[in-house]
Design a protein around this nucleic acid. Structure first.
Lengths: 199, 199
DNA sequence: TTATATTTGCTAACGGTGTTAGGTAAAACG
DNA sequence: CGTTTTACCTAACACCGTTAGCAAATATAA
């Protein structure tokens, strides 16, 4: 069955061609200007070929969204592993989150619908539990080390994430007239407040 | 010149008809499905008539964006006026922000590009200085009342806003599986942390 | 090898979008 | 009344996502 195998590999090639071309376009011109027709043009196939590999344009976006979450989760994981003290871990993860979002604006936009089309209440992010788990572990430890072990971990996690997401999405939307340096200070300031409030 | 005056009033009527119809559509079906053609259809004029009143679809959106900011600023102002203690003011303004965003999801989405098309780095919000000013006043007072008068007000303001925006946009995007009650707790928790960190 | 079945890729269309050029009829003005 | 401005429309342009249907190339079976 060497023939059908080669066939499958050819198909996989086209599939990855679609994805890499699409990603290149997004990086160059943003999500707005990504279109099935342009992808087809770039990979020198006709439009319906795209639909042999992806059910819809949405499906392509989901692909990228999941990839983005995978990358982010990895970064967070690595940041956490660098420290043993939970508070240090939280600071490192906040930094990693911030850096990921700004270095991978396109991923972040897609993942959380910052200035995007689509994304109407749909949750791309099925694998988000892993991300949640990693951050919550540090929060749990940080709380148990302090005097207030009765705190709601889920609540604290949510607060943590909100702070990060707010900062990042304001930055990405370009609504913030302040410099990048100040933004980093804001991040540290907000995280400090969060940590102080842990116990 | 009674004739030209009546003419102008007629024109104004069409203009407001466009806006009210558009707004109704958005409330019913979301920003996604708003189209020039549907508006024209609803007000029983042909498509180009819209372009006699608005330069583009974007211009209509800007109109709503500014209206949203006006409304939000008003709510924030009113919340502030209810208290004299700056910390109470901050809490009230945070509540007002939260309530506005959830009661006026469509405005908020447009203003800050939460799950929207358009909004690529453009800043609709020219009048944002007023909003900034109102919040910063309370922060300034809260800081000067505490021991740490050297704090950067602009930084603190930004932190405050980031917390609010993060919470709101996560809620609006529907990425948060937690209940509305918990969300309110998260808001209070985050604001508590912010206030503790003020001095 | 030949006949059949499957896969591959295409053209062309459907219905939708924002936007605009160009024409017509009505109204306002001198 | 004639002229000019205004209001309004039809029709088109250039896109978009999506799909039906067909032709050619390939793989499978007899």
């Amino acid at each position: 069955m060497g023939i059908t195998e080669r066939r499958l590999k050819e198909k996989e090639k086209v599939r990855t061609a679609i994805l890499t071309t699409a990603w290149q376009m997004v990086k160059e011109e943003g999500w707005q200007s990504l279109s099935i027709r342009k992808i087809a043009d770039a990979i020198e196939y006709s439009v319906p070929v795209i639909y042999d590999h992806f059910e819809s344009k949405e499906a392509i976006l989901v692909e990228f969204g999941n990839e983005g979450l995978r990358l982010l989760t990895k970064k967070i994981q690595q940041a956490r592993e660098k420290f043993t003290d939970p508070v240090d871990q939280l600071r490192a993860m906040a930094d990693a989150y911030w850096n990921f979002a700004l270095k991978n604006k396109e991923y972040y936009q897609l993942m959380y619908g910052v200035g995007m089309a689509c994304c109407e209440g749909k949750k791309y992010l099925d694998d988000k539990e892993r991300f949640d788990y990693i951050v919550m572990e540090s929060i749990k430890e940080a709380i148990s080390k302090n005097k207030e072990p009765g705190s709601n971990i889920c609540l604290k996690y949510h607060t943590f994430w909100s702070i990060l997401h707010g900062l990042v999405s304001i930055k990405i939307m370009g609504n913030s007239p302040v410099s990048g340096e100040l933004n980093k200070m804001v991040l540290d300031d907000a995280i400090n407040g969060f940590i102080k409030n842990l116990g």
